[in-house]
């Protein structure tokens, strides 16, 4: 969620139970301004909070030219001193998914170890090799934030447009979804590189506006029902919660350009989802 409307947005997503204490809120309002200046960001987003056993990570993201791809992620323990997270690479994601288990500890230098026996065949005899994968929690954090962003980041349809140059930008004339449209899941899009869009048939593509519909809608997610869409406060705000990443909350105020998402949770994916529906 945008750092400018932080307090307002936090209030609307507070239905999840976790909010920020007034001290943290105040600190964020100061530090995010400094962050924006130091890193020369166009916009700063408060991304959320990942709860660890001994400490909690606060995550912020800075946006440069392109809203979707030019993002840098930073973390902090006290909402004041921010450290840059390394960008997530394929290799890192693979390592993290192997080694990192259980809850976050709250110490970026904590190392997760994972021993693995690799079997190779060398000149007709099988050689067993013990390989230990070591992953620091900082890497795990970077990978988790990246995965959450690719899997469950949400924007309302029309809030961002793809310019002819190929960059993704804020749609200045976005006035919000109407109340009836806001209660339909297909009007919310994954804010990440589309995966299913190219697989669509020409007939389906005909209805899409290439400058707005360049993302995948949430309604096509598998399994069906991995999102919980509710109109809260008697329909004045639309809140979407991801059941895959418990803790991700998105809000949109119908008929207003206000929208945003925040993740407040333990940073664990809910792999049991198919049993729980």
């Amino acid at each position: 969620m945008d750092s400018n409307a932080l307090l307002y947005s936090l209030d609307l997503t507070a239905g999840n139970g976790i909010t920020l204490s007034s001290e943290h809120k105040a600190a964020l309002q100061t530090s995010l301004v400094i962050l924006k200046r130091n890193y020369k960001f166009k916009r700063v987003l408060f991304w959320g909070k990942i709860l660890g056993i001994k400490g909690d990570y606060f995550i912020a993201q800075g946006v440069a030219e392109d809203e979707m791809s030019d993002k840098k992620t930073l973390y902090s323990f006290n909402c004041m001193d921010w450290q840059l997270l390394p960008p997530a690479t394929e290799e890192m994601l693979a390592e993290v998914s192997k080694a990192a288990k259980g809850r976050f500890v709250g110490d970026p230098s904590h190392e997760y170890e994972h021993a693995e026996t690799l079997r190779r065949e060398e000149e007709d005899e099988a050689v067993e090799e013990e390989v230990t994968v070591k992953v620091s929690e900082e890497k795990r954090l970077a990978a988790t934030v990246f995965t959450i962003d690719t899997e469950v980041s949400v924007v309302p349809r029309g809030a961002y447009i793809k310019t002819p140059h190929g960059t993704v930008q804020n749609n200045r004339s976005f006035e919000g979804l109407s109340v009836t449209e806001a209660s339909k899941l297909r009007n919310y899009l994954h804010f990440t590189e589309p995966k299913n869009l190219k697989k669509k048939s020409l007939l389906e593509m005909a209805d899409l506006n290439p400058c707005i519909d360049f993302l995948d809608p949430l309604s096509e997610d598998i399994p069906k029902g991995s999102w919980s869409l509710q109109m809260e406060r008697g329909g004045s705000v639309c809140v979407i919660r991801s059941l895959l990443w418990l803790g991700l909350t998105f809000f949109h105020v119908p008929m207003s350009p206000q929208h945003g998402y925040v993740y407040m949770g333990d940073g664990l994916k809910n792999l049991d989802l198919p049993f729980m529906l």
């Binding site: 936090l10 209030d11 609307l12 139970g17 909010t19 204490s21 007034s22």
Partner: peptide, 9 residues
């Protein structure tokens, strides 16, 4: 609210 828990004031 001090504890950072709640549904909003």
């Amino acid at each position: 609210e001090q504890a950072g828990v709640g549904l909003g004031r």
